[in-house]
Design a binder for these strands. Structure first.
Length: 324
DNA sequence: ATGGTTTTTACTGCGTC
DNA sequence: GACGCGGTAAAAACCAT
């Protein structure tokens, strides 16, 4: 059994996990594990459980509503909608001609030529920024569409758009499709948020094929050095259980099986989905619920053979755990 | 490209309803 | 006989080198 060679399913060290959660967009309080809530009025992100302030002095994206006199009111009420991730340009752009001629066709003075050169430079900078914004707009639309098709919550979309933005900023897009990168961002975000979806599920709602997603995903993860934990089998359990209309007891037992399996180190290098499916199956046996292997394999998109193998291992691990 | 692992596919035998 | 389940061997997929 190789513990280190297989990367996809093998767990990184625990410290890495903690460190990563501080760096990345974390949604769980590092102190007590409670949920974080952002408080726009104070510009803080605080834990709803213990009150720990995680972020301070955040920028309020809202408009400047305050005005102290009439003149200032005129000035500040220019605001449109508050800036959001969804902002993009209207597709308007300007080009400055390359000839150094004025409107009458006369050549410009050297002073004027310099000035126009500077203007071209800046115009170009803003224009490419605009094209990135358009790109972003489309990608975010895709992310939204896929996320809702998969029933992924708001925070996952948020994380996905952050990842996408980073990919865009680092010029990872050229040579890759917007779709592909957007899908990869969503896949990564779902895994980071602990609500993973399998590649197959993702591919089912995406416009690009599975292999391309996998390729760009690897690329994006490497380039942005995102540290993504191997998916935790437990995070699949609730979904399978509810898809199969099984009682809560099954879920509890399945979790327990997975936990003892973890302590025995049986799970290293195995597909988390397979483990989860096997745990659900084994748990329903223990709970005297009738579910067939094929039903479980159906909802988990895993072969029956894998379920058989895993659930034997799970039960063995359970025995070894209780016996000695 | 290669090699080592895991997962899938396909097939077979056994027991039960 | 269909179905659920278990096992096996060979093929395919996957990951790291």
């Amino acid at each position: 059994m190789t513990d280190t060679s297989i990367r996809q399913y093998t767990s990184e060290r625990e410290e890495d996990r903690e460190r990563e959660e501080e760096n990345e967009e974390t949604l769980v309080c590092p102190e007590c594990g409670g949920n974080l809530a952002s408080d726009a009025e104070h510009g803080e992100t605080v834990c709803s459980e213990c009150g720990l302030v995680v972020e301070e002095d955040e920028i309020d994206p809202g408009p400047e509503w305050r005005a102290f006199d009439a003149a200032e009111k005129d000035e500040k009420s220019r605001v449109g909608a508050p800036t959001t991730n969804m902002m993009h340009d209207k597709g308007l752009s300007t080009n400055i001609g390359w000839q150094d001629k004025d409107a009458y066709g006369n050549s410009l003075s050297s002073r004027q030529r310099e000035k126009m050169q500077r203007l071209r430079t800046w115009n170009e900078r803003f224009r490419t920024r605009d094209s990135k914004e358009r790109n972003l707009k489309q990608a975010l639309g895709e992310i939204d569409r896929m996320a809702s098709a998969l029933g992924l919550p708001e925070n996952v979309r948020e994380t996905a758009s952050v990842i996408y933005r980073r990919a865009l900023d680092e010029d990872l897009l050229p040579g890759r499709s917007i779709e592909g990168v957007a899908t990869s961002a969503l896949y990564a975000a779902a895994r980071q948020a602990g609500t993973p979806r399998s590649l197959d599920e993702i591919a089912a709602v995406s416009r690009v094929g599975k292999d391309e997603i996998a390729r760009t995903y690897r690329y994006v993860v490497r380039e942005l050095s995102l540290e993504i934990q191997p998916a935790d089998p437990e995070s699949y359990v609730p979904r399978f259980v509810s898809d199969l209309d099984l009682p809560e007891e099954v879920e509890r037992r399945a979790r327990q099986l997975l936990n003892t399996a973890k302590e025995q180190g049986v799970h290293s290098g195995k597909s988390p989905v397979g483990l989860a499916a096997a745990a659900v199956y084994a748990a329903s046996l223990l709970a005297n619920e009738k579910v067939t292997q094929s039903e479980v394999s159906e909802v988990a998109n895993i072969s029956e053979v894998t379920i058989r193998n895993r659930y034997h291992e799970l039960l063995e691990a359970e025995e070894d755990f209780t016996a000695p």
